[in-house]
Every structure is written in structure tokens, then in C-alpha cells.
């Protein structure tokens, strides 16, 4: 019985998903592949939210300032930091995908590149945390 038939015979979605998760190869590269998809869907959703939120720019200064006040509250600062982490992973791993796909030796170096993605990502996320929560360049 092929893997596909095994999924087909079970009509309970939760058991099907669980069996997929159990069968899944939890290797570094495939985890990055899943994270890339999840962060990608999140970013497409965020693009809608961002454009919607910036409609305040055509409603005048008072509406815009009220919205910006909201964005400086701690909840939104944490949300912006998480958003940056999502952007960061998707961008860095995206560069890794391009290197793996387009360079002659990239595919042989995909795990080292992934370590670089996580290392650079953590460093950049910490730096952004400093910028967001301590605002060192504030006048």
C-alpha cells in the first residue's frame, strides 16, 4: 500500500494530520521549508493589514497620529518585534533558497547556509529588539 492510499483510507482529518506529522522527516532543511511556508502566509496576511492600516494617511493628521500612538504601546512593540523576526527568517532563508538553487555548489552547503541563516537572524533580531525597546537614536 502506497503512502497516498494510507492517507486516503482514513477520513478523520485529525488522525490524517497526525499521521502526516508522525511520518514527517523532521530534518533541519525540511523544518526550514515548513517555516518558510508558514512565515510566507503570515507575511501575505500582514501585507493586507499594513496597507489597510496606512489608509489613515488619507484621512488626515489626527487619525494618523491616533493610530501611531497605538503602535507605540508595549503590545504593539512586541508584535512589531515578532513581525521583524518573521520577515527576517523569510528573507534570510529566501536568500538561502536562491543560493542553493542558482549556485553550482549551493545544494551541498545547504545545512551550513541554514546555520548561517539562524545565526544572522538571531543577531539581527537582538539588534532590532534594542532599536524597538530602547530607541537609542531618539532625539
Amino acid at each position: 500500500m502506497g503512502v497516498e492510499q494510507m492517507y486516503m483510507q482514513d477520513f478523520s482529518p485529525f488522525r490524517t494530520w497526525w499521521s502526516i506529522l508522525r511520518r514527517y522527516r523532521w530534518h533541519a532543511g525540511s523544518v526550514a521549508w515548513i517555516l518558510h511556508r508558514i512565515t510566507g502566509i503570515a507575511l501575505l496576511g500582514y501585507l493586507f493589514v499594513h496597507i489597510w492600516a496606512l489608509r489613515s494617511l488619507v484621512k488626515g493628521e489626527a487619525v494618523f497620529q491616533a493610530e501611531m500612538e497605538l503602535f507605540t504601546t508595549p503590545v504593539f512593540k512586541v508584535a512589531e518585534w515578532l513581525l521583524f523576526a518573521v520577515v527576517l527568517f523569510h528573507a534570510l532563508n529566501g536568500i538561502r533558497i536562491v543560493v542553493v538553487d542558482f549556485s553550482a555548489r549551493g545544494a551541498y552547503r545547504q545545512k551550513a547556509l541554514l546555520r548561517l541563516v539562524y545565526a544572522a537572524g538571531i543577531v539581527a533580531a537582538v539588534l532590532m529588539g534594542v532599536l524597538i525597546f530602547f530607541d537609542p537614536f531618539a532625539v
Partner: peptide, 21 residues
């Protein structure tokens, strides 16, 4: 990626840059 880096640097570097009408 290029767009996003430019966007973060010009708009989100400080609160004053992005949050002023």
C-alpha cells in the same frame, strides 16, 4: 529583500521617521 531593507531603514529606523504625519 532589497525593498524591505530600504523600507526598514527609511521608515522604521526611529519612531520619529515613521510615526510623523
Amino acid at each position: 529583500v532589497v525593498f524591505t531593507i530600504g523600507h526598514y531603514v527609511t521608515v522604521h529606523w526611529t519612531e520619529a521617521a515613521g510615526h510623523s504625519f
